[in-house]
Amino acid sequence: MEDNFGYLLAGFSIGWALFMGLAYWTYRKVMRVRQDIDDLKRARNPRPEDG
């Protein structure tokens, strides 16, 4: 383990960065989907404030 310590840290850092990147991408995608659903609902049943 001593010999591979730097590789281990680098591996973990890259792995975490990729994971967090994927998590953020998923989060923004979910936000977009929620907005699409909301728009679709409003198109079917317009609310008074939509005019």
Partner: peptide, 12 residues
């Protein structure tokens, strides 16, 4: 026909 028209910005 169902059409979604967003009046808000595209990016949440």
């Amino acid at each position: 026909p169902i059409k979604a028209e967003s009046t808000r910005s595209i990016v949440p």
